[in-house]
Simulated scan of single mutants.
Amino acid sequence: MQGQQQQAYDRGITIFSPDGRLYQVEYAREAVKRGTASIGVRASDGVALIVDKPVRSPLVEQDSVEKLHKVDDHVGIASAGHVADARRLIDFARRDAQVERLRYEQAIGVETLTKDVTDHIQQFTQIGGARPFGVALLVGGLDDGQPRLFETDPSGTPYEWQAIAIGSDREEIQSSLEAEYDPEIELAEAVELGLQALGSVQEEPLDPAGVGAATVDAESEQYIQLTNEEIEAALPE
């Protein structure tokens, strides 16, 4: 009987277990942990997003591995977890940003965008016959010229960070970030810090072709994805 009750809590996203847990949300968090790492670092003059894109086969076109996404001119998103789930949320975020521009003729705030996305995520923890999104996002951008960096959780909770890692090896990468992060860090140094933290959990030196990086610069207020040559120049020696 106890096993049948446990199975009911596992399958029912809208049912709390007796100890107040939603098992499907916890399983979604486990799916995020199985995804390759993504890192966000907030600098004094922008936000850097770093992602691990391991080369699984020499036949794979690296540009088809989507972990970095431009949402608006001033906002970028990195993901960890199920890529297909991430694409759905990215599409939602892009529509939300465009509606803001069309309706109010202004760029959407990073915090507003993040909370709209997490409200959408949260709905899938209360709907029968659906499942939570098995992905976490890092939303980085500018609010009135000020760099902001947020994390979304499969439960639909937003968190703001100075520097954060999601996906596999999160604890080790986060420890590296906590040891090295400086609030006054500049954007170029933030990219180097993110790459250094990612490299700290890799057995082999980082391959620029297997890493993605993007920045949102406070001066230009533009999301820019770095080339392999720029990433190689920023790699720790």
Rank of each mutant, 00 (worst) to 15 (best):
G212D: 05
L59E: 08
A107S: 14
E66G: 12
V55P: 03
L198C: 08
N228M: 13
I224F: 15
E172Q: 13
D63M: 07
I121H: 02
E66D: 11
Q106V: 04
V41L: 11
E232F: 13
G35K: 00
Y104K: 11
L102Y: 14
D217E: 09
R131N: 02
E203S: 12
E180N: 13
A197E: 00
Y223R: 05
A130T: 15
G128I: 08
D91M: 08
I185C: 01
V191C: 09
V211G: 00
T118P: 02
E192C: 06
Q162M: 12
R42G: 03
R88D: 12
P58R: 00
F92W: 06
V41H: 08
L206D: 00
A188H: 11
S168V: 07
A234H: 10
A190S: 01
P18Q: 00
V135A: 00
Q24V: 02
V65K: 02
E219R: 13
L22C: 04
E237G: 08
G141F: 02
R103S: 15
G199A: 12
D10P: 05
A78V: 03
P183I: 09
D19S: 10
P147F: 02
I231R: 03
I164N: 00
G76C: 04
Q106Y: 05
P132S: 13
T125A: 01
N228C: 12
R148S: 02
L59H: 10
A97H: 06
E189F: 07
V75T: 10
D63F: 13
M1S: 13
G129E: 01
K115D: 13
E100K: 09
R29S: 07
V47H: 00
S44L: 09
L226D: 07
A97L: 00
A233H: 14
I121S: 08
D144R: 14
L235V: 02
D45Y: 03
R95A: 03
G81Q: 06
P208C: 07
A37C: 15
G145Q: 09
Q202W: 05
W161H: 10
Q222E: 12
P132C: 12
L113D: 00
D91Y: 04
D10M: 09
A78R: 03
F133K: 03
R101E: 09
E221N: 12
G128T: 11
G210T: 01
E111Y: 10
V110P: 01
A165C: 10
A163Y: 09
A179M: 11
